[in-house]
């Protein structure tokens, strides 16, 4: 039953990802990447991760697309130097084997939403039961991110800060 919505979404994901790789016109590739992010956000929302879906829409489909487009304005919409050599034979053999290995390993993963899986028995019940009394924050995701795991979030903010500074320093040109 659950596959009714997932399979078309996953096919759309594959199609948009493959199209973004194979497209010669870089502008179309960027827009296809935006579509990919949007479908990925639909998958997240379908799995119940609304916060992640929100971030994926805003950052993946919105901000990243704009940044890619601005980069294209600064360079060229079509890269003529792009020559794709055929993939080496080792990759053609190794990558399907890797995929088979991953599918084999995926059989041992717990069922989606299994209450007895390790992820939902270790510390998650504590967060789910205690977070409102502890922090007066109804959204458990926010209280975990910003309160229980606050130091992690601070270092993530440092990462964004560093990325912004590095981009500005690398792209700095003299402003006329």
């Amino acid at each position: 039953m659950t596959f009714a919505y997932e399979i078309p979404l996953l096919i759309l994901l594959l199609v948009t990802a493959g199209g973004a790789i194979l497209m010669k016109d870089l502008m179309s590739a960027v827009l296809l990447l935006g579509c990919y992010s949007f479908f990925l956000a639909l998958v997240w929302a379908w799995l119940g991760a609304v916060d992640v879906a929100f971030v994926e829409v805003v950052v993946g489909a919105g901000l990243a697309t704009v940044l890619f487009l601005l980069t294209l304005f600064g360079t060229a919409p079509k890269d003529g130097r792009l020559r794709r050599p055929p993939p080496p034979l080792a990759a053609l053999v190794a990558l399907p084997l890797l995929g088979v290995l991953m599918l084999y390993a995926a059989k041992d993963l717990p069922e989606f939403g299994d209450p007895n899986s390790p992820a939902s028995t270790h510390i998650s019940p504590t967060y789910l039961q205690q977070s409102f009394q502890d922090t007066h924050t109804p959204n458990v995701v926010t209280s975990v991110l910003m309160d229980y795991r606050s130091l992690d979030t601070m270092v993530e903010t440092v990462v964004i800060f560093t990325a912004g500074i590095a981009c500005v320093l690398l792209l700095r040109r003299k402003v006329s």
């Binding site: 601005l70 980069t71 304005f73 600064g74 912004g164 981009c167 792209l171 402003v175």
Partner: peptide
């Protein structure tokens, strides 16, 4: 980042 991308 957008400023520096569109600066010149």
């Amino acid at each position: 980042i957008v400023f520096s991308l569109s600066a010149e």
